[in-house]
């Protein structure tokens, strides 16, 4: 008799303490995949592309930091920062479970949270071993695009855009919001979203970036802010 008494007594506590969604809606799995492209085609490392100014570019490296990846108001994934490294894998995916609903937008922040740029030694995606931390001017490289171009007058015709800066006028950390195309949630089916990241957008947009004039950007400052202003617009959601 006593056993049942305690069971009934503690049952609401157990149910209330569950960390499940405080929601009547069903859970819905979401996969957001970032894919590098050049204009209308998937980006291939080692292949040559032409930018809006007619300059050729062969890409060898493309990666950037993301955090706070959200569907509506719900954050996806368990890590606080992600490094989308397309040299490591052709697609970068973050997954999560959100209440089932017809969400109209998704968002994420491109870059590393400003505080993490001056809090000392970091690990995981923010480990300096990933080559995305300036050792002589402490701070993260938020986005990196490297390659070669016949228009680059640098040694080895190298093109190197290391875009960083986290404070004041040098800040390039930005929240990107993308409208989601309409969809109907299907029971038991994950919502899969593909976000294209178009490297061509680095060269045109708010400012025109010419490889001939600026084959390299290695420090925070005006040029980095200009290039970042362009690449904020490189994301688009792939529609079937």
């Amino acid at each position: 008799m006593k056993k049942w008494f305690y069971l009934i007594l503690f049952f609401p506590v157990v149910v209330a303490c569950q960390k499940d969604l405080k929601d009547d809606r069903k859970p819905m799995e979401v996969n957001v995949s970032f894919r590098p492209v050049s204009g209308n085609e998937p980006l291939e490392f080692g292949k040559t592309y032409i930018n809006a100014l007619g300059e050729d570019l062969t890409v060898t490296t493309f990666k950037f930091y993301l955090h706070n990846i959200r569907i509506g108001n719900y954050t996806l994934g368990n890590e606080d920062h992600y490094l989308a490294d397309f040299n490591a894998s052709p697609v970068f995916t973050v997954s999560g479970v959100v209440p089932e609903s017809r969400y109209t937008e998704m968002s994420f922040i491109i870059g590393v949270d400003s505080v993490r740029n001056f809090s000392g030694a970091q690990t995981g995606a923010l480990d300096p071993l990933h080559g995305m931390f300036w050792t002589w001017n402490s701070g993260y490289i938020m986005a990196k695009l490297e390659g070669h171009s016949s228009f680059a007058s640098t040694p080895g015709n190298m093109v190197e855009y290391h875009i960083g800066g986290f404070s004041g006028e040098q800040n390039v950390i930005k929240k990107i919001t993308l409208p989601l195309p309409a969809y109907t949630p299907q029971p038991g089916q994950p919502l899969s979203i593909t976000v294209n990241a178009d490297i061509m957008k680095w060269f045109g947009g708010e400012s025109n970036i010419s490889i001939a004039e600026n084959p390299v950007c290695m420090t925070p400052g005006e040029l980095a802010v200009k290039i970042a202003g362009n690449y904020y617009n490189m994301f688009s959601i792939e529609t079937e």
């Binding site: 740029n117 809090s119 030694a121 300096p128 050792t135 001017n137 402490s138």
Partner: peptide
Amino acid sequence: GGINHIEVQPLAPITA
């Protein structure tokens, strides 16, 4: 003053 935290200072001479 390019290094903003004692913990990340060694990265500079190690990788230079």
